[in-house]
Amino acid sequence: MKVLSSEITLGIAPGSVVITDTAVDSFFKPRFEQVILGNIVTRSTELDKELAEELLNCSKEIPNFPTLIGHTMCTYDFYEGQGRLDGALCCFSREKKLDYLKKAYKAGIRNIEMESTVFAAMCGLCGLKAAVVCVTLLDRLECDQINSAHEILVEYQQRPQLLISKFIKQRLGFQSQTS
């Protein structure tokens, strides 16, 4: 299971936990492309749907814990690849950025990061049930800069670990014990 604590979100409130059902590339395709011996090999990035549902159900037992299932877009870089306007280089307008991010939202993407496609592809190749669990820190449809207080960000960053630890305890039969 991959747990991330600092993610960018699309159209959902900061602090929400996103359980990824499918990792997609920057074209919104569920694939990971890798060059092997000069050839492009494309692998699926579908994740285990039952595991995602199980994690979502587990999250419902945690008070004040906004959680949803959605696609995660994986990009090659943090700035231009994610449509950010606050990097050193930027070759597009705010309107182009918002148009792209709105298309991503319509395609089911709820957060953006940089590792999920390779993780999903490798787990699938190995036959492993896998999940990606992220917490969101800001809504990219609203802004590019994180402006929450440090204490709030620390609490947000603990949410994926809280969910995964609760899930593991349930799987081990320790659900009656407190976290």
Rank of each mutant, 00 (worst) to 15 (best):
E61W: 11
S148M: 03
A104C: 01
T178E: 11
G87W: 08
V41A: 00
K2W: 14
V154M: 11
A149S: 15
N64R: 11
P160V: 10
L89H: 13
N57Q: 07
E151P: 00
D25F: 07
E46D: 00
G124P: 07
N39K: 15
L153I: 12
A120E: 09
G108P: 08
N39E: 12
F174M: 07
S59H: 09
L137T: 02
C143K: 08
K96V: 15
D86Y: 06
V133N: 12
A107S: 08
E80C: 11
A120Q: 11
V3K: 11
V3P: 12
Q170C: 06
V133M: 13
G38V: 14
L141W: 10
E7I: 04
R171A: 05
C123R: 14
G11T: 13
A104K: 03
I62N: 05
N147A: 00
G87E: 06
G15N: 00
E115M: 15
E95F: 12
R140A: 08
D77K: 01
V135T: 06
C126L: 00
F28W: 12
E61S: 14
L10M: 03
T22S: 06
K102H: 12
P66C: 01
N57R: 08
K97I: 05
S176Y: 13
L10T: 07
I69T: 11
M73G: 06
I146G: 08
R43S: 04
N147R: 12
T45W: 00
K2L: 10
T20D: 13
C58Q: 07
D139A: 04
N111G: 10
E142S: 08
A121H: 05
C123W: 04
K169Q: 02
F78I: 09
K169W: 05
P30F: 12
F28P: 14
L137Q: 07
L10W: 12
T20Q: 04
K49T: 13
A23C: 06
I112F: 11
G124F: 04
A13Q: 04
M114D: 11
L47F: 10
G127A: 03
M1R: 01
S116C: 10
D21L: 10
L153W: 00
I168R: 12
A88Y: 06
G83N: 08
Q145T: 08
E33Y: 03
D48V: 00
S26Q: 05
C74G: 04
E155Y: 14
R140G: 02
D25H: 01
T9N: 00
K102M: 11
F119G: 15
D86F: 02
A13C: 09
Y156M: 08
S165E: 09
E54L: 15
L55C: 06
L56G: 14
V3F: 06
T45L: 03
Q158T: 13
G11I: 09
G173T: 06
C126T: 04
Y100L: 02
V24R: 01
Q158W: 14
E151I: 10
K49D: 00
L153Q: 08
A131M: 15
E142A: 03
P66H: 03
H150K: 14
Q157M: 15
N111D: 09
K96F: 15
G70D: 12
P63S: 07
T45A: 02
S59T: 10
C126P: 04
I36W: 05
L125V: 01
C123L: 00
S6L: 04
L172P: 09
K96Q: 15
M73C: 02
S44F: 05
S116T: 08
E142D: 09
K97H: 07
L89D: 06
E95V: 09
I19P: 01
C134Y: 13
Q170K: 04
